[in-house]
Design a binder for these strands. Sequence first.
DNA 1: CCTTGACCTGGAGCACGCTCCAGATACGAG
DNA 2: CTCGTATCTGGAGCGTGCTCCAGGTCAAGG
Lengths: 157, 157
Amino acid sequence: MTTYTPAAASARSGFSLDTLRYYERIGLLFDIGRTAGGQRVFTEDDLDWMGVLRCLRDTGMPIADMRRYAELARHGETTHAERLRVLREHAVQLREHIAELVDQQQHLHDKIRWYESQTPELPADATPADPADATPSDPADATPCDPTPDLPAGSAT
Amino acid sequence: MTTYTPAAASARSGFSLDTLRYYERIGLLFDIGRTAGGQRVFTEDDLDWMGVLRCLRDTGMPIADMRRYAELARHGETTHAERLRVLREHAVQLREHIAELVDQQQHLHDKIRWYESQTPELPADATPADPADATPSDPADATPCDPTPDLPAGSAT
DNA sequence: CCTTGACCTGGAGCACGCTCCAGATACGAG
DNA sequence: CTCGTATCTGGAGCGTGCTCCAGGTCAAGG
């Protein structure tokens, strides 16, 4: 059974040593093995669980919710239904968040295009508006980030 | 020329009164009008600018960068090229961030599906995996959020 | 006028998520 | 056994982005 030192676990998980210790303190990591001398010993399973934590964290789940989820995970299979509920709820949040980002991304691109039209001598190097862009969004809206010249600093120009 | 009280500006922009004052203090809002008595008077242009701030903020631009951008905006048309550069850079960041979220979203959905397969008696109500979902992503990867039963709490089951 | 609610300022405080520190201990190479 | 690096613990500190507060001022209706 493969095990990992704290340094190795940190490297593989991408969490800092301090973060791993912090996560254990607050209950996101639990049942972490120890040597006779008291040093942590991480298993493959621990690493996998860290992958779950990373997914939840990187998708914006607050620590408090992750603690609830970890608590459920700690209590075995009887909590599957509840865990599923938590994940579904989080997926809804995530979908909404992504949708908002994509929306604002559209406005941002509109603004960039406005600036480009104002300074045609400039090379349109970066952000080449890749047609196979990672994020679609029907161009049928326009609220913030409107393509205007950043209105202040010229109120009565 | 239409003007707005602080309360109205707050309502229209979605920023709290305290946030508007904070933004003025740190330079994100500037040249805000005042009554003889010292109370703020916001204009249509101010509101539009707040829309820009909201776009940048909601897409994750740090306050420090927003200050730089505001500083540029405050200095007139000569800074157009630099502003364009800032926006393009931010657009790149945003694209990367969205891509990562979409990636993790896929893992999250995988995990949800795994739970569903484990508890088939449960209704698959929420997150109905809408085929016309807002965010595409080729299902040709799987790293974190793997569809496993949240490995801890059963190391040797 | 007078009241009352909106607004002002400067500065303290807070929630979140780590990150750093001091002082002590553990472990592996030589 | 010794040395040097890795880890340990408890607790303080930090960076970000607001949010709240006290004590005072402004402005519009009655």
